[in-house]
Design a protein around this nucleic acid. Sequence first.
DNA 1: GGGCCGTTTGATATAATATAACATTTCAGC
DNA 2: GCTGAAATGTTATATTATATCAAACGGCCC
Lengths: 172, 172
Amino acid sequence: MTGPGNATRPLACARHDHGRCVVEALATADRLCARRGARLTKLRRRVLELVWTSHVPVGAYDLLRRLGREYDGAAPPTVYRALDFLLGQGLIHRIESLNGFVGCVGPDQNHSGQFLICRDCGSALELSDPRIDRAISKGAAALGFAVERQTVEIAGLCPSCRPENEESSHAE
Amino acid sequence: MTGPGNATRPLACARHDHGRCVVEALATADRLCARRGARLTKLRRRVLELVWTSHVPVGAYDLLRRLGREYDGAAPPTVYRALDFLLGQGLIHRIESLNGFVGCVGPDQNHSGQFLICRDCGSALELSDPRIDRAISKGAAALGFAVERQTVEIAGLCPSCRPENEESSHAE
DNA sequence: GGGCCGTTTGATATAATATAACATTTCAGC
DNA sequence: GCTGAAATGTTATATTATATCAAACGGCCC
């Protein structure tokens, strides 16, 4: 496993200083949007912060409920528009199998969004595994299919939620 | 590319005798359900047939509309229950990114559902590529994650919808 | 600062997807 | 035919997402 990503980043499902995740995600968002001339407004930034409450994908209406306490007129379009902006900037991902949204762990790098989603704790661990990319590219190319986007959502049990004795074969 | 699957089966997006797809799918469903003691009732069989109208994933409410002409009391639960049964028997797949359903091309074999979905013609080409399976297994195992189900939905352009001059690199 | 214009947000309504809960019917096995 | 479990009918409602138009905001030119 190479690259600056997974090796140095704590597993989403494991105990970690999540405050740091949030602070870093917001700082990166500020930086990227400034660089791109995109307007990370107060509302959008707040929605991003709410998405980053945890690594568990959150639904639009959950966000709306939390937002409603601060923004009086908040309605579905309020949150969906913010989410659209954040998706467009690559700051969050949509988890299709959950109709939920989760913060992107590497919005400054190109990556396609591969997720390991624990059915027990719910946390979504983002991968950017070049082997998966390659396998998909090859499989598609063999059939003459031109890949544009990939949705890879793997459901199962994360290391924290697996029974201890099953945690074998971490082999690379 | 090995196995009895993709090599002999026509590409969903290409011109083919689709009537044969439907007949075979229904025959296989009859056979599998009989073997399993599962009841492929008239309604469920008809829903399966409607899903197999094409290789384009179809929404539950589309099915409901088509069904409504024949089954007077058809309501959302009617179709969702039939779909649940068919999913449970592995006769159809749910396409998460489209909230749609599509016939399974190999319900008698184990397979996990990998799809190439054309954004132009809409058809979903089902793969069962062991390289993708392996890449996912390895990526997950490296992080101690126990895979239970995979959702792989690749969006792009199918060979029929690609501009001719772009159809390069079909390399295996 | 004031006017202009494109973007963002507010506000209301409604569409699209999915499930809960309970009544009735059907059907395989006896 | 009886019976019990499974399947379907029926009504209501939950959940997710978008359309539409109006108002407010924010950069920019002068």
